[in-house]
Amino acid sequence: METRIVPQTEMAAFVGELMKTARVMAPVRRDGVGYFEWLESADQLDATCVVPRSSPKAALLPRCETLFGWRLEKGEQRIVPPPEPIPQILFGLHPCDVRAIATLDAVFASDPSPDRLYLARRAVTTVIGRGSLADPATAFFRELGVDPMDNGGCDLFLAPLDPDRHVLEIISDKGRALLPACERFPKADDRALALLADLRKSSAAKTEANPGLEQLAAKLAGMFESDLWSRIHEHCAGCGVCAFLCPTCHCFDIQEEQRGDRGARVRVWDTCQFGLFTRHASGHNPRTSQKERLRQRIMHKFSYGIEKFKVPFCVGCGRCVGCCPANNDLRAILRTIRETPSE
């Protein structure tokens, strides 16, 4: 694998080069808070942000995406296919966010009807991960087996050596296509690579090698009627913060937009936390209270997702932990589940 050394001070210049080849989504900071956003200029980049508050899923599953458009022509409705996606680079993704993309891939590529819109966008997406040596206080990705120095799933990976330098690993064909933007950086020498190997070793040692997710899934499957659910929903306000910030939550609604003689069918983010989510046209609702909705959220993430798609719908990024208005801590919920004796 080809490797280069990228000085921290050159990060914005690197992004500037990348922006010549595709649109780039990267961490920015506003009022002290990190967000993943499409960059307008390279100097917006915040190269210190580890897990920005908004997740990069918006690049693959936009908050609002046109499924197709239509217009009336001489009284006939004509379908207008959505525009083809343009090449895009996701820069500076924490390995947990990269893992989240694998989750989205598993869902949207699933048979019998792979989602062509998602897959087309995914095909023109280059993922540049960035490792991290310090874990955010609210994160729990190590518990779920995600190593913050792991370059799996990345096309390019920036592995931190110290506060001033990263080793740039050029991993895939998509990554190699960006070589012109990387060639300005010196090749990594053996000393740097040895240091990186050490850092990786100690990071791996701190990461749960066997997170036992299948066992957790199986245990949860038997906990549908547990009184745990009546306890943990009481202070949940029923908002969509957790789901909308989550890098793996992908549930969507399909809505109609119309203006005069043209319109579009769009998909917009939705969440199982909203009461409307499962309400039938007849008025019947299988999930009448926050208890059922919160249970669905936990079950979908740690049981149904694993059973059906073989991947957990959680990567431990901690966004929901830090931003829940009621501080309903997913880590604590998981701990309670693990501690609950099996029936």
Binding site: S54, R63, A237, G238, C239, G240, V241, A243, F244, V268, W269, F274, P325
Partner: peptide
């Protein structure tokens, strides 16, 4: 982002 946290 219409997460409705303000309302909830």
């Amino acid at each position: 982002i219409l997460c409705h946290a303000c309302r909830q």
